[in-house]
Design a binder for these strands. Sequence first.
DNA 1: TTGTAAGCGTTATCAT
DNA 2: ATGATAACGCTTACAA
Lengths: 345, 345
Amino acid sequence: MASSPDSRVPRMEDVAREAGVALGTVSNVLNRPQKVSPKVQAKVHKAIADLGFVPNRAARVLAAGTSSTIGFVVVDLSNSFFLDMTRGAEREAALHGLNLLLANSDVDFNRERAYLELFAQERVAGVLLAPVTTSQPVPTAIPHAFPLHTVLLNSDATEDACTVGVDNELGGYLAARHLIELGRSRLMFAGSPDFARPVGQRFAGVKRAIDEVPTVGLELMPTDEVQAEDGRAVGRAVLDRQPSERPDGIIASADLLAFGIVQAFLSTSEVRVPQDIAVTGYDNNRAAWDSGVPITTLAQPGEESGAVAMRMLMDELREGRSHVHTHTVLSPKLLVRESTVPRSS
Amino acid sequence: MASSPDSRVPRMEDVAREAGVALGTVSNVLNRPQKVSPKVQAKVHKAIADLGFVPNRAARVLAAGTSSTIGFVVVDLSNSFFLDMTRGAEREAALHGLNLLLANSDVDFNRERAYLELFAQERVAGVLLAPVTTSQPVPTAIPHAFPLHTVLLNSDATEDACTVGVDNELGGYLAARHLIELGRSRLMFAGSPDFARPVGQRFAGVKRAIDEVPTVGLELMPTDEVQAEDGRAVGRAVLDRQPSERPDGIIASADLLAFGIVQAFLSTSEVRVPQDIAVTGYDNNRAAWDSGVPITTLAQPGEESGAVAMRMLMDELREGRSHVHTHTVLSPKLLVRESTVPRSS
DNA sequence: TTGTAAGCGTTATCAT
DNA sequence: ATGATAACGCTTACAA
């Protein structure tokens, strides 16, 4: 048998023949409809439908030298902050006829690099990167010397790329300020400032707020990670102390951490939240929503980050050589819930 | 100016020249290393590194006619069941040198179709699809007559494609059976069997269990959606009744629903969970984990679904014309937690 | 291993 | 609009 006689994938040439027009006309119908009369367009579209023609993007990218897809490498899709970013980016991309493809690095630096490499090979128009964060100042932005237009999300300003970040120092400050205004004076910060750069920044903000009020003290309670389990450990450690030795306000560096802390307290009747100890989280992570006691947190503008980043990327693509990297810093918003202020009803 | 004199993107030809070998040899080094001597390979790799050469996949796909990337269109990445699928699929793909790109349809049928179309245009090797579920028997599997190898996840068997699903009827049965064995006899099913096919199947399973025991009654409590808010509404409705009119066991068709129900009960002291009313959820969704009272649920094998689906897809790709669609049904597992059985300690 | 060359399915340009 | 044709960057086959 020479080759299956059936169903070869139709090409533009086949569509042209079927519609009785020139190949170039089919291409025009698809890419520059305004250059083709409505009657001819109709014929072409009918032929496309009849044949089940699906344009070949590989050929398109190769010939045109440009792609209309954007790649987004995300550090952790299970965190709603990052998932929200993809929503914002996607919405913005759709407005401009761009497609968004996702890759989950899952907090694995090697996978992050592999996906960036993949997108580079695919010659996507550009990439959005919410990088694996470490305690390093700059997250080793773009791996190879390849001209891959990249916007960094949830990142600090760097010379290598446009960035959009959230003011973590401010977030820490707002959390501490909130507790201080509620009259708390023995604060505890749960989390390790060295764990990741954002955590260190939040801690710095907390310290700034504390330094403004001499009567307020701060204690650091390091944790291994920032999961609920680590929070429960913190909670138990606090419960093991004499009541007079306990803090009256805890600033957790992540929602899941706060969640675990609250959970540990709720499992006993020794400590009431927030009456005895108020607790704040960070991220407004839906995975920690609606816990027994809703947790006061700092909402990170996820969708906005994604949308802003996508716009910055489009600017960069449009500007070409004359482009100068820019940096946007968005502000977190304090969401007061029952873990710091009892329900008023 | 003719064209920017600087940094043109290097091609294989440039690598070949730099390394002092033939173009075909560079291609071989990349695709069939065993055909090239180690010494030459080293030279080529050095040239690739020096030039910062990044192979062009568009050209590769076009020339070879095959791609090594798989597209995965996911209905709802915020549900950990589906996110787990992507992890399983990715792990399996990586084992065989395939890349996995994600697209989030976000429960939007139009976006689902658009992404499938995109993957078809990209000529990916195949696609995995966790479709938007409706109450229709078959989720209008593959949109166009294009030969896009597709495996459906979280789906019932269909003639059009390979599928891997989870036995929802069994899940409903196991949940009801569990409550019955705990001595509950006035059961309530929260959720609308018509909302989506899986819900209807879970309800059928519940009925089967109920029918096996004449002394147990079942009541249906429809909801609009399956979110925490709908659960709170169910909880309030139950609380509004006389205690004697209340169920002693509630089977929620989703974790968030169960979550809302439990929350409503916890906010009063009228009903204790599980002593007065036991509650089960469905999905083992991490978004509902670690609630005040951990919720008994049916864990869906997410990672396994993804891995199995990817393997089925690879079989399909390998078998070509002789392929016959197959169907796998995985079983959910009952995870007993405190919303049905009080902590033993 | 080399060197050559025929595709792969588009885009884009040209004169008609 | 047409018809023809040169890219685009790679894979693959072939003869040397």
